[in-house]
Amino acid sequence: MADNTPAPSSATTQAVGGMATSYRRKELRRAFESMVTSRWALVGMLILLIVTFVAVFGPQLAPFDPNRQNIMMRLLEPGEAGAGDLTYWLGSDQLGRDVLSRLLYGARVSLLVGVAAIAVGGTLGTVAGLVSGYFGGWIDDVIMRLGDIQLAFPFILLAIMFLVVLGPGLVNIILVLGIGQWITYARIVRAQTLSLREKEYVEAARAMGDSTFSILFRTILPNIVAPLTVIASFNVAGVILSEAALSFLGLGVPPDVPTWGSMLSESRDHLLSNKWWMAVFPGLAIVFTVLAFNIIGDWLRDFLDPRLKENG
């Protein structure tokens, strides 16, 4: 059958492309203005930028090798000078390792685990939610009941159960934390897909003979990115907290990889002798990072969908 649809002229394409660019620029400006007016969001973004910078340039910034043990320099107080006039700005731990250097390297693990787990859980959940909402029927039932089972008991217990058998490791913890998040995304994507699949433009795509894959990922998905971004931001905060808790229990990454959670775990044995710096600094690092993600999540929610604003 001959296609009678007139091909868009290059002038039209250029005009549409130009409008899209101008719209994007306007949105970016609106986002920037909104962030500057909301002081908290600015603080959150600043913290996040610092943590990201530290995570990327940690090895260049760290004064010591984070795993270098020096028994002569063990449990030095913050600001005390070690051998060779090098100062241990945040003190040293029970094996004489520099707390500051371990903290800088730890940022890398926390961010990596947070972002990678969300990527795993977000991808799984989005695909499951799209399929569940679009096809409905028994597929929907099976996917949602699986989610109900997972939500029916505390996630940290599930993570403990798997990690105790699989053993600690970066990949294992990312997978377990990621799989733990999928249902959050699946539920939101499913609800959005259910309402979008009846919209005219989805009907139009179907009538034009677009493949199911194209309808799901090119027509529906771009329209549900906003709520997903908000959830992802809060989720990164939750995942960083979970990683810290699991590392604290000895189920995180291997001992030679410095993480904030494992640093806190090691600090427990030195609380009674008041070696406070071993506990205070890694904890503050976790609090500020999680706080930043929570603040950004709040701001994103209000910015992307003011209807969801917490009546504040």
Binding site: A237, L241, A244, A245, F248, L264, S267, R268, L271, N274, W276, A279, V280, G283, I286, V287, V290, L291, N294, I295, D298
Partner: peptide, 18 residues
């Protein structure tokens, strides 16, 4: 409330002990 949602419970425990 925002701070309370950002502090790991076990760290809060350690800080209270200290």
């Amino acid at each position: 409330a925002m701070l309370g949602q950002s502090i790991p419970n076990f760290w809060m425990g350690i800080m209270m002990i200290l």
